[in-house]
Write a protein that binds this DNA or RNA. Structure first.
Length: 251
DNA sequence: CTCCATGTTTAGAA
DNA sequence: CTTCTAAACATGGA
């Protein structure tokens, strides 16, 4: 979504000014370096890999973005008010601007020579939506730990967060604490991941627009499973809250 | 006031 | 070596 937005609205315009409002979002780059890399240039393409966004600058360098918990890119038309927690603002010739809004500042902005380099250095694995089934099976099999932390491990599969991991497990009938899953169940999980991510993209990450058969619109204490009416369970796994249905999600 | 929260990294314990 | 937990980061809402 963010990538599509940037692709549609932030490319090919000459950058007039950069304003780093809060340098805490910068990751191993100074505000000066960022300005030097962007001023007078244009953004030429946008790609997403897992939770990372990369914007190519026409100099060949890339802007590397992570939205964190609360980050979001916002396109501002000429004269429109900017979001309250704008941490970085890029103004284009012509009056439009790109604001990076991020309340909690868990997002980050950096520069890299190439996305491949950046991903390798950070140890980020294949993107969930581009990953082949066999690669997924290879990454997930032979592990002794619980399935949920493996899904959240960005080095094994990049792009699933806590909520979508819960949703994929829910859809494939697998308990987040299950271990050593058989091939057949991993295949079901793979399909669920693909479907959950595609459906979520189509609904613009709005939980209320997701099908009622999804966990996410019901992911609250005391709610019932939309499949069988069983009370949803809430547990902590690897420090993250997990919701699941004890009736249809098996170990 | 306290607890919790959509993410990542790091340190340290099993 | 693998797996898991807690803490830290910053801010707001219940």
């Amino acid at each position: 979504m963010a990538r599509r937005l940037l692709e549609a609205r932030a490319l090919h315009q000459k950058i007039r000014a950069i304003d780093v409002r809060d340098s805490r979002i910068l990751n191993s780059v100074s505000a000066q370096d960022l300005e030097g890399a962007l001023a007078g240039r244009r953004l030429s393409s946008a790609i997403r890999h897992g939770k990372r966004l990369f914007l190519q600058i026409d100099s060949g360098l890339w802007l590397a973005l992570h939205l964190g918990l609360t980050g979001w890119p916002v396109i501002l038309e000429k004269g429109s008010a900017e979001p309250r927690h704008t941490r970085l603002r890029i103004d284009f010739e012509g009056g439009a601007a790109l604001a990076f809004d991020d309340l909690r500042i868990f997002g980050e902005v950096g520069l890299t020579a190439s996305p491949q380099d950046f991903l390798a250095r950070r140890g980020i694995g294949p993107d969930a939506l581009k990953m082949e089934k066999e690669a997924f099976l290879a990454a997930m099999s032979g592990r002794k730990g619980k399935i949920k932390p493996a899904l959240l491990d960005q080095g094994l599969i990049a792009g699933l967060g806590n909520l979508y991991a819960d949703e994929a497990l829910f859809q494939s009938g697998i308990c987040p604490q299950a271990r050593s899953l058989k091939r057949e169940r991993l295949e079901a999980l793979y399909s669920a991941i693909q479907e959950v991510l595609r459906t979520s993209l189509a609904s613009n990450a709005d939980f209320e627009k997701l099908p009622n058969s999804y966990l996410l619109p019901h992911r609250r204490p005391g709610e019932a499973c939309p499949w069988d009416g069983t009370a949803l369970q809430r547990i902590k796994i690897a420090g993250r809250t997990s919701y699941y249905c004890p009736q249809h999600q098996k170990k």
